[in-house]
Amino acid sequence: MRILIVHNMLWAHYKSSVFQALQQLVDQQTDISVLVLQIARNERSRASLESNSYESTPTYMYKYELLFDRYLEEVSFRERAQALLRHAKAFRPDVINLTGYYDPAQLLLLVWAKVNGIRVVMQNESTAADQQRGGWKEQLKRWVFSQCDGFFCFGSQAADYVIQLGVPSSKILLRKNAVDNNVLQSVYNQSLPSRTQQQQVFGLRPNNFVFVGRLIEAKNLPMLLNAFAEARKQSKNGTDWGIILLGDGTEKANLTQQISTLGLTDQIILLPGRPWFRVPEVLALSNVLVLPSRSEPWGLVVNEAMACGLPVIVSERCGCAVDLVKNGQNGFVFNPDQPEQLSHLLTQFMDGLVDTNRMGEAARQIIAPYAPEAVAQEMLNGFIKITN
């Protein structure tokens, strides 16, 4: 069996860890080979997070070809289509895994595969809740999905969305998403001993909630700041807690102004984004991750925080909430349109009414099956299933 995987970006580390695990499984077989076609180096919007300049950047080993050594936005439809078809014809796959249904060049590859009797697995990370759905786009998706033989979905909500569009549940081959748990845990553990010292360097409180991600409207950060301001008033320990916002984005200036207006410049700190493998350095300065998004197909930062043993407070609009957050065990889920719910949860942590150590241990146990090795094994099982 010859497996061809099409992926947008070489830089997507969380996929690279899965591809490496898949390569290791394939190398144990004599009749299976795999090749990953990386269309571009990165997306322009994520360029600031590229980690090429860091000597400690983890490297991943798997068979791939980088089609265009530039940003994805700079690669035209014609270039993508010609390159994908040329490489697919040369590789002669038995099954193709496509990144998504939104790229016309990959849809063209889908049609080519169907004409030539090649099986197709479609990746889906969208959910019914992450944005408004309807109209001709949904009808197009129904047709595209009807042409596919299987689906790798980012969690239960993504799988449910595919099923709503007419896909039999038997075609759902994967319902997980993974990050490199081992690397994240290692960096976190190395950073913990200097926690107090680093908190003093950054002017942080001894206890902190942390947000990691782009500072954009969909992340719902103004609501988080208002909820924290209210919780600070309600909690007897309000002055011992702060918030770390780790990331960059278009809303940075507005958030800075809001922090000033709330009178919380000494408790809410903005730190610039950093490569993924250095995020645990900031998680080590924190107690609880908060992801308040109004729209979030999955939320890989929740995987990252749980791998490091942090409790999580996650919006119900995040795709990972159903699969990863067990209410009261490793964290809590809340309605992002009801700030009083978030204020209450923040207050609970501030007042010590939540056993963070127990929740952190539960987080590690819950995230363990969401490891690259487990996801790769399920992918391989899926490829074998549909080709047989």
Rank of each mutant, 00 (worst) to 15 (best):
R2F: 07
I5K: 06
V6Y: 03
M9T: 14
A12H: 15
Y14V: 01
F19H: 07
Q20R: 05
Q20G: 04
L22I: 05
L22F: 12
L22M: 10
Q23C: 04
L25R: 13
V26A: 05
V26H: 06
D31S: 13
S33M: 01
V34M: 15
E43P: 00
E43Y: 14
E43V: 06
S45C: 03
R46C: 01
R46N: 14
Y54P: 07
T57S: 14
Y62I: 02
Y64L: 04
L66V: 08
L67A: 03
Y71K: 02
R78H: 07
Q82N: 08
L84Q: 01
L84Y: 06
A90V: 01
R92L: 05
P93V: 06
V95M: 04
I96H: 08
I96N: 07
N97K: 11
L98N: 09
Q106H: 00
L108K: 00
L109E: 08
V115C: 07
I118M: 03
R119V: 01
V120A: 09
N124Y: 03
S126Y: 14
A129P: 00
Q132P: 13
G135M: 03
R142I: 05
R142M: 12
D149L: 09
Q157S: 14
Q164M: 13
L165T: 09
L165R: 13
V167G: 12
I172V: 15
K176F: 11
N177D: 12
N181V: 04
Q185S: 12
Q190E: 15
S194L: 13
R195M: 03
Q197L: 12
Q198H: 09
N207Y: 08
N207T: 05
F211P: 12
F211A: 05
A218Q: 15
F228L: 00
A231C: 02
A231L: 00
R232C: 07
Q234R: 10
Q234G: 00
K236E: 15
K236T: 14
G238P: 07
T239H: 14
G242S: 01
I244C: 07
G247H: 12
G247C: 08
E251S: 14
S260K: 13
T261K: 12
T265C: 11
Q267C: 05
I268M: 01
L271P: 13
E281F: 03
V282I: 13
L283V: 04
A284W: 03
V290T: 09
S293W: 12
R294L: 15
R294M: 14
P297V: 12
P297E: 10
V302Y: 11
G309C: 04
P311W: 02
I313H: 01
S315E: 03
S315F: 04
R317E: 14
C320N: 08
A321N: 02
D323T: 04
K326D: 11
G328N: 07
Q329L: 14
N330H: 10
N330T: 08
F332L: 04
D337E: 15
L342D: 09
L346M: 11
Q348E: 13
M350S: 03
L353P: 00
M359C: 13
A362G: 09
A363Y: 03
R364D: 05
R364Y: 04
P369K: 01
Y370R: 06
Y370W: 15
E373L: 03
A374V: 10
A376H: 12
L380S: 11
N381R: 10
G382M: 13
K385H: 15
I386V: 14
